[in-house]
Design a binder for these strands. Structure first.
Lengths: 326, 326
DNA sequence: TTGTATGCGTTATCAA
DNA sequence: TTGATAACGCATACAA
């Protein structure tokens, strides 16, 4: 019968006490060279891997983090990559929890993660305040990226949506466009309202009339709104701002169908239109992009500070958008 | 001093024994209605959440699965979604381990997951046989999706690449194309070699000469190969098969630069060109797509069967591609 | 249906 | 530098 692959078995094989083996993994510098060597050999022959469950039980933390969100667009995945890379550097493992913006699914994940004694959570879109409260009650360090709701009792990382809306509109006005419409995106979502605010302000400053047609973030939304917009009235609209890349795609399809040419008849600009969405033939008039990867990295950074004991009031990191061309 | 939020504290608050609380979570049907109610109340007031670490320690399994891979393209992410959804249904939590095809990173994740006593692993591209052996040594149930290497001692799920290559080529020949070239994709990778095999066979059956220019899966690869191909000689090539969506994009860019028109001068077809990569203006001549989501689901299914005790020899599931148009 | 005793693998604490 | 002991929270086996 071969010895069990636990700390005791290794200790016996190495001729030392279990504590020495434990120290081999946790404070190897506190061991004599001889002990070090003997334990190393025993570990190798027994193929021993420490059992994190025992450690978690004892210490109350598991060495794991989690991302709860709704990875639907390329933008979300880029945030996730930023998180992943930083999590990796900090030697944690990451749970991926795609809650699909469904309250029940999100709750399911939260419960599961609490059971696992996850050390911290990065939360992307959540429209549900009560799920956030559960996290607060259990004192799980939590950081929210790109929040959909205002007044959240956690650290928050987001893009500067107001400024982005303002700057994008200014840019377009500067290019000579006069009748600029804002298309798509869900009503009531903080970041979108802020972009809209920036757009509206910039338009008014230019004595232009804001034209907004909200919807959601889908291609269909862009397609339908555009189709309606150009068939109901005979608008003098010369530029459309898409709420995101998918909406832009829908807009382009609609213009195509309508026999209108981008950029000659109507120019299309967008927020967060990532490289993957656009071909060579139709560069956008302008494209204001959130630093998605940085958002992820920054969120992870804040989270780890919390885990390491930072106990100040909720922080808010606001990162600037970038004007991107391709 | 408030009672600790463990099974004992709940037991005391509910006036029952710890075992009754344990049963409340694991075999609630074996409790009297009264006990059930009292425990439920105590759990609620104490905000108690079971500690999975203790359970893992006792049972040896953690209720977690992991995906190790390299999520770079939309295709990979679709596989991941298939995995995620099935994992969710089966009530596991999923670790996301983006190893970026780096041997060292992959090994790091494997070690970490072993420590966590992960119940099973789904492995995507791995070019490293020794990492696979580590998994085998530790008897972690493992399933490989879309393997890059042949002869792997685990369950495997993959697309029928040979048939896909054959069928796609036949389709194009059937459309009247004669001089069809195969562009991009890395040499030595099983699935690509198989596509190539199918392509070659179909070409030979039609008494046509195969023309292949491998590279990798990047847009640059498609761009460069195409540029070279059409400047070095004056080919009578009338159709290009791109190894994937990014390569196709590169090809289209190159043709554009060369002043050649798709589909009139040279038609472009592809494998795995997903919706996101293409606009309205340039539908592909043909597009042979792996059922990525299904691959993920199937892999998860096989994995869970292994976890539940299935102990047969390695299985291989081969799913058919689909011819997709948009 | 309920309860008691025991042990899972590890590490904090204290002692040597 | 090393070791003995106890404790982390839970569920299995058994007893009542």
């Amino acid at each position: 019968m071969k010895p069990k692959s636990n700390i005791k078995g290794v200790a016996k094989a190495a001729g030392v006490s279990p504590m020495t083996v434990s120290r081999y993994f946790n404070h190897p510098n506190k061991l004599s060279p001889e002990s070090l060597e003997r334990v190393e050999a025993a570990v190798k022959t027994l193929n021993y891997v420490p059992n994190n469950a025992a450690r978690t039980l004892l210490r109350g933390n598991s060495g794991t983090l989690a991302f709860i969100g709704h990875v639907a667009h390329h933008f979300d995945y880029t945030i996730l990559r930023g998180i992943e890379d930083h999590v990796y550097e900090c030697n944690y493992l990451l749970f991926l929890c795609n809650a699909d913006s469904a309250r029940k699914k999100e709750r399911h994940f939260i419960t599961g993660l609490l059971k696992q004694r996850v050390d911290g959570i990065i939360l992307n879109p959540s429209y549900n305040r009560d799920n956030l409260l559960v996290l607060a009650e259990h004192h799980v360090p939590t950081v929210v990226v790109d929040p959909k709701l205002p007044d959240i009792p956690f650290d928050v990382v987001r893009g500067d949506s107001y400024e982005a809306g303002y700057d994008l509109t200014k840019t377009l006005l500067g290019k000579g466009f006069k009748r600029i419409a804002f298309i798509g995106g869900p009503k009531g979502v903080t970041s979108l309202e802020q972009r809209l605010g920036g757009y509206t302000t910039a338009m008014k400053e230019a004595s232009a009339t804001p034209i907004t047609q909200l919807g959601d973030y889908s291609r269909e939304s862009g397609f339908n709104i555009t189709t309606q917009l150009f068939s109901s009235r005979s608008p003098k609209i010369d530029c459309l701002i898409a709420a995101n890349g998918l909406v832009a795609r829908g807009i382009l399809m609609a213009l195509n169908t309508l026999g209108l040419n981008h950029p000659n008849d109507v120019a299309v600009a967008a927020f967060d239109a990532t490289e993957e969405y656009f071909g060579l033939e139709t560069p956008l008039a302008a494209n204001m992009v959130q630093p998605a990867y940085d958002l992820g990295q920054c969120a992870t950074q804040l989270l780890i500070e919390r885990i390491q004991g930072f106990d100040g009031p909720p922080r808010e990191k606001v990162l600037p958008f970038k004007l991107v061309t391709f």
